[in-house]
Amino acid sequence: MLRDQALDALLLCDPVRKAAAARALTDDIALQPDVMLCAPPRIPGRPARPELVAPQRVRQRGAGSREGRAALIHSLAHIEFNAINLALDIIWRFPGMPDAFYRDWARVAREEGLHFQLLCEHLSTLDMRYGDLPAHDGLWEMAERTRDDVLARLALVPRTLEARGLDASPVVREKLARAGDEAGAAILDVILADEIGHVGIGNRWYRYLCALRGLDPVSQFQEMAHRYKAPRLRGPFNLEARRAAGFTEDELRALQEDARRQAGLSAA
C-alpha cells in the first residue's frame, strides 16, 4: 500500500536506491490504513555523506569554473534529495486525508526522484558525486518542526521553502547557461516546470484544510510562519511562476509587503 511503500522508501539510506524507490511508488491506496503508522527511529534514512553542516559553512562558488558549476549542481542535488524525503514523509506521516492527497504526493515523490537522478548524472560529467561536498539540512529541519500538523507542513514546506525554488530557479538557470552549461540549464527547465506543479499541490491542499477548519488562508499562513519561525522570504519573486502555482493576488501582495517591511528594518 502507498503509505507503507513511502515509509519503506523514506528509511532507505542509499540515495540511488531511495530515488529509484520514489520513482517506483504506485497509486495503490486499496485498503489504505487510516491511522498513524508507527514511526521507526532515525527518519529519514541518510547516506554517510554529504557531511551536514550549518548553512554558513556551505561554501558558495561562482558558476564560471568547472568546480563552481559542480558545487552548484551538487547543492541542487541535495535539495532534490531532501525533496524526495519530504514527499515520502507527508505520505506516510499524516493519516485521514482524501485518497487524492496521497496520489498527489506520490506523483511529487516520483518527479523529485527523477530530478535527483538527472542532477546526479550531470554531476558525474563534472567529475563529482553526490556526497562529495558538505551540505546543510534546512529543509528537513522545517519538516521536523511541522511533524505534528499537516496544515503547518503544507504552509511552510511546499508553500514557503519549496516555493523559494520558483524564485531562485531562473537565476540559477541563467548562471549555468551563461557559463555554457546547456545540459544543466535544460535540467533546471524540467525542475521549474515540475516544481510549479508541486507548489500548486501544496497550495491546493493547504486551502482545502483551511476551508475544513474555517481558517483564512492568508492570516493563517502569517500566524504559522511566525509560530514555526519560518525564514523570511526576500525578493525578487517569480510572480509568474507563483501565480501558475496557485498563489492568489492577496497572498502575493502580502508576500511583497512583508519583504519590503523586512528590507526596511534591515536598512534601519
Rank of each mutant, 00 (worst) to 15 (best):
P15G: 01
D149Y: 08
I43V: 15
Q60N: 00
A230G: 07
S219P: 02
L7N: 00
P236K: 06
I84L: 11
E240R: 15
E162A: 02
Q56W: 12
I90V: 14
A193H: 15
Q256Y: 02
A22P: 01
E195C: 02
L37R: 10
Q56H: 13
T125A: 02
G62M: 06
A183W: 12
A155N: 07
D258T: 15
A179S: 14
G246Q: 00
D27S: 10
E182N: 13
Y206S: 03
R66A: 10
R173L: 14
R242T: 11
R17M: 02
A185K: 13
D28R: 09
A259D: 13
I84D: 05
R107I: 07
D137K: 13
G113S: 02
D8L: 08
G200Q: 03
F116W: 04
N85A: 05
G235T: 12
L176P: 02
A211V: 01
A183D: 13
R129M: 06
A100P: 07
I191L: 12
E144L: 08
Q56M: 06
L188Q: 12
D14L: 05
L88H: 11
A179F: 14
P98N: 06
I191A: 10
A152C: 05
G200I: 03
A106N: 04
L76T: 08
A244G: 06
L2C: 02
D149C: 09
A22F: 01
Q220D: 06
R145N: 11
L11C: 05
A186C: 14
E240S: 15
L76I: 13
E111A: 09
L265V: 15
L2P: 05
R42E: 11
L151C: 04
P217G: 05
E257S: 05
L7Y: 00
Y208T: 06
A241Q: 06
E182P: 08
H136N: 13
R66Q: 11
H136S: 11
F116T: 02
A135G: 01
S266K: 12
A244M: 08
A168L: 04
A19W: 02
R103E: 12
D137H: 15
S124Y: 00
R69W: 09
Q220G: 03
V157P: 12
Q262F: 13
A71P: 06
R153M: 10
